[in-house]
Design a protein around this nucleic acid. Structure first.
Length: 879
RNA sequence: GGGCUCAUAGCUCAGUUGGUUAGAGCGUUGCGUUGACAUCGCAAAGGUCAGUGGUUCAAGUCCACUUGGGCCCACCA
């Protein structure tokens, strides 16, 4: 009917062709349609610097499945796409490219540098978007957003000012605190951006001499000896008898010869180290807190780049780790290094460049979080927002309930500049404003300047679910969004903060469901990362196996919320499946007469009695469809994918198509095989969009794109347990005969004769409609049905439930072997009978188990008795 | 220190509220080119469900502990 299909599916040309067509026909665009319900997902915006990795592939495949499914289900289904400006990450990338020209960003100045970043963004920023398209992502690209777009930036400033002016006291404040400082990126980081990692370090015991008796010492233990240059006290626990007498005495800080006091504070753990702690308020959060209580001096000993500063005497300009070594040498020389013990410790690391962060005293902007967290905790506790899998709820709540203020200022250049202005004249006014102010609101001076810092990238990302909508109508229709699909790593960074922002700025939760998928790992369980060199590049897989194969393999191996361990050969499964779909379709299309597929199924049912094979495949299809819908409703994507897979491959292809080959020209068979294929294509489309479209377009009745079709309507009335059971009997018989052939080493080339013998009359009737199918698939020349009879020596007999399957043999049968096999079977069933008998004799079981279970067990036991009886007869017959 | 998670076939993993004789993909073995597909078909081998104890009529599934992986959080210098 159409041009000949190739023997193998060729994803490459197919995928490019259809993605283009979909885009050109605006099939991804979602409109406000009052007659439809809205379904909306906002993409976790990838960094503009991003290139597609397996994590993205998994994340976006899941979203695309949901979006395509809901679209077919009749929702106005919007997948809102965009990218994140990713402050530090992007700045680092551009800085690296500048470095190749021997330049630093300081050489350009902030304005030129920012222009450079925009250039870079224009040139490379859409890489990841192009890659998402290769994956088949059906985002509404006409709505693509960037977190530094003008409108989006305005939303960011609005949010800032709104928090600033929140009554009764603003939620934004500036303060000197110990923050996480990355000496390489030279910026403050939030706590979330400085994850702790275990390090093998040392505990150094330093001797600080007493001023009054220079030969007496207090020994302190530290993991960062270089910070001793900034010590302004030594603290002990007031209850510590060892030091009681020394409290209030003065020590001479070695190397710097500063006089420092011994103070008492309950914070000190008597059991750790020596019980005496050096206090470095400018370089340790605990010490800082302590210094406030004891009014200690704060001495910062480092420059922002991690080198020792002018307060470090001879160590000035040494890197902090170099200074550590030299200081230790110097102390050793003066016999002030008591000992060194190996000591595991954990230190914060910059999440962008992995440099060990320095706790560092500086003036930063913070958001008070407690009051924002409160409604966000409620929303999850009350179930307005649900986590899938639910265990993440606990993680979320635990973090939210212990939330700390959020450091939002960054000392980088690329980002949203903090919308705060200072007055150079009166020097007292600090103004926050959405629009750039022209003059000081207090003294009227025009000499005002904006804060140089920029906002944390996440201060813009947390607005994503609503700031992406440009107009109110869209916002009202699509917000709150439906599902958020993301990875566990960013629950705190992003998910939690979006919930707070949604409630704070919109008065409504941002999404109803949060689906947290696993992390993609390599086959050894390591996280896939460039530095480990264990990456499987999704684009390579797409090239080699096709996007559908990539998508299907990923999804079918990803159980809900479990991490995914991937190796390359995994993707063969997806490729093979695509090829299977291709070839089954090819076979059907080759044999299909267009005039046969127009009939309406319902009318057809009224007029014609369907063959068992046709009834069966319809029943199985709808059973599968039902299960698929149930699985998708609770985000069990692997189950859904695997159901469709095994239905299509093992039921539709392996059984059904083989069953109907002899009757393929029949009207009803033509119609049913076509209908099932057509419906299957629609059901598999969210998972494998490209191949389903390619075949769809070749169907004789196809109108428009498969994307525009509705999800198959679930016809429960076509699910028939009795049909499925009846067909199963045929399969059992066929399998048994195949098995007998294999055992007797009778190839398919030799025609065989089979007798089915039965004891129950009703079986005869059931079997009669199966005969032709059995003969066909088991390659039986002559099949006869008779009442039970005495087996002969030249017959090979297998028992199957109510039947005996008898294969008369012309040659010699290995009787001993057959008897042995029979005996093994008998023994096995007998042991199962023993179990069942015990079970059914148990009064507790009879009184407490549900009736259905008991009945089922009784039936099973009865069947087993019969089977054993028959096997015994066969055995005796053979003797 | 607190929390989460995993342990099921040679490998990678499913197994939804406890209820048939525990499944799949890959791999292995044997057979097979019948006109959809060798990226295929048919058949087979392979598991005391990490260990111990408990709850239950019934446990891979629930509980406790043990062992061994992975992850997250936490201000022990």
């Amino acid at each position: 009917m159409t041009e000949e299909l190739s023997k193998q599916y060729n994803p490459k040309e197919t995928e490019e062709k259809w993605y283009k067509t979909w885009e050109e026909n605006n099939l991804f665009s979602a409109k406000v349609s009052p007659e439809k319900s809205a379904y909306c997902i906002v993409i976790p915006p990838p960094n503009v610097t991003g290139i597609l990795h397996m994590g993205h592939a998994l994340n976006n495949t899941i979203q695309d499945i949901l979006i395509r499914y809901k679209r077919m289900k009749g929702f106005s289904s919007l997948w809102m796409p965009g990218t994140d400006h990713a402050g530090i990450a992007t700045q680092n990338v551009v800085e690296r490219s500048l470095a190749k020209e021997g330049l630093k960003r300081q050489d350009l100045g902030s304005e030129k540098f920012i222009a450079k970043v925009w250039d870079w963004k224009e040139q490379y920023g859409s890489t990841i978007i192009r890659q998402l398209k290769k994956l088949g992502a059906s985002c509404d690209w006409s709505r693509e957003r960037f977190t530094m777009d003008e409108e989006y930036s305005k939303a960011v400033r609005n949010a800032f000012v709104s928090l600033w002016s929140k009554k009764p006291t603003g939620l934004i404040y500036q303060d000197d605190k110990i923050i996480n400082w990355c000496p390489r990126c030279q910026t403050a980081l939030s706590d979330e951006e400085a994850p702790h990692k275990e390090l093998q370090g040392n505990l150094y015991y330093l001797k600080y001499p007493l001023k009054d008796s220079i030969n007496e010492f207090v020994i302190v233990a530290t993991t960062r000896p270089e910070t001793m240059l900034g010590d302004t006290a030594v603290a002990v626990n007031p209850k510590d008898k060892r030091y009681k007498k020394l409290i209030g005495k003065t020590l001479i800080l070695p190397l710097v010869n500063r006089e420092i006091k011994i103070i008492a504070d309950n914070l000190v753990d008597m059991n750790f180290g020596t019980g005496a702690v050096k206090v470095t308020p400018a370089h340790d959060p605990n010490d800082f807190a302590l210094s406030a209580r004891h009014r200690l001096q704060l001495i910062n000993v480092m420059y922002p780049d991690g080198k020792m500063n002018e307060n470090s005497g001879d160590y000035k300009d040494m890197d902090r780790f170099e200074a550590r070594e030299v200081i230790l040498e110097d102390l050793k020389e003066r016999e002030l290094l008591e000992k060194v013990e190996p000591h595991p410790l954990s230190a914060g690391h910059c999440y962008r460049c992995h440099t060990i962060i320095e706790p560092y005293l500086s003036k930063q902007w913070f958001v008070k979080m407690k009051s924002l967290a409160k409604p966000a905790i409620e929303a999850v506790k009350k179930g307005k927002i649900k986590f899938y899998p639910p265990r993440w709820k606990k993680v979320y709540l635990n973090w939210m309930e212990n939330i700390q203020d959020w450091c939002i200022s960054r000392q980088i250049w690329w980002g949203h500049q903090i919308p705060v202005w200072y007055c150079s004249d009166c020097k007292k006014n600090i103004m926050a404003s959405v629009e750039t102010p022209l003059k000081c609101t207090k003294c009227g001076s025009t000499k005002i300047y904006q804060d140089k810092d920029v906002l944390d990238t996440w201060f813009s990302s947390w607005l994503w679910p609503f700031a992406t909508f440009k107009n109110k109508v869209d916002l009202q229709y699509f917000y709150p969004t439906s599902t958020l699909v993301t990875a566990p790593e960013i629950i705190f960074f992003w998910v939690a903060r979006m919930i707070m922002a949604g409630l704070e700025f919109q008065g409504q939760i941002p999404f109803k469901d949060v689906y947290i998928h696993g992390t993609v790992r390599d086959i050894e369980g390591k996280k896939m990362s460039k530095s480990l060199g264990n990456i499987i590049d999704p684009l390579e897989i797409i090239k080699e196996y096709g996007a559908d194969a990539l998508r299907f393999s990923l999804i079918s191996t990803t159980a809900q919320g479990q991490d995914v361990y991937l190796s390359k050969d995994r993707f063969e499964q997806g490729r093979n499946f695509a090829n299977k779909i291709w070839n089954a379709s090819r076979f059907i299309l080759m044999n299909l007469k267009a005039e046969n597929v127009n009939a309406d199924l319902c009318v057809f049912f009224k007029n014609e009695k369907l063959d068992i094979a046709n009834r069966w495949i319809l029943s199985r299809f709808y059973s599968t469809l039902k299960k698929t819908e149930e699985d998708l409703a609770v985000y069990r994507f692997n189950e859904a994918a695997n159901n469709l897979y095994s239905f299509f491959w093992h039921e539709f292809c392996d059984w059904y198509l083989e069953l109907i080959k002899p009757q393929i020209d029949q009207k009803q068979t033509q119609l049913i095989m076509y209908k099932v294929l057509e419906k299957f294509l629609r059901a598999i489309h969210p998972f494998m969009p490209f191949i389903s479209e390619e075949i769809w377009q070749r169907l004789p009745g196809a109108k428009g794109s498969i994307m525009q079709q509705s999800w198959p309507h679930l016809q429960k009335n076509l699910i028939s347990n009795s049909d499925e059971k009846q067909m199963q009997l045929a399969f059992d018989i066929i399998n048994t005969i195949r098995n007998m052939r294999a055992q007797m080493e009778i190839g398919l080339a030799s025609q065989i004769e089979i007798k089915l013998t039965f004891c129950d009359k009703s079986v005869e009737k059931t079997i009669s409609s199966l005969i032709s199918h059995i003969k066909n698939l088991a390659k039986v020349g002559n099949l006869t049905i008779t009442e039970i009879y005495q087996p002969q020596k030249n017959e090979f007999v297998c028992a199957l439930k109510d039947l005996n399957i008898v294969m008369p043999l012309s040659g010699i049968v290995n009787v001993a072997e057959q008897i042995e096999k029979n005996q093994a079977k008998i023994d096995k069933i007998k042991s199962e009978i023993k179990n069942k008998e015990g079970m059914l004799a148990n009064k507790n079981f009879l009184s407490r188990a549900p009736k259905e279970i008991i009945d089922a067990e009784r039936t099973k036991l009865k069947d087993m008795y019969e089977q054993v009886d028959k096997l015994e007869v066969i055995k005796n017959g053979l003797r």
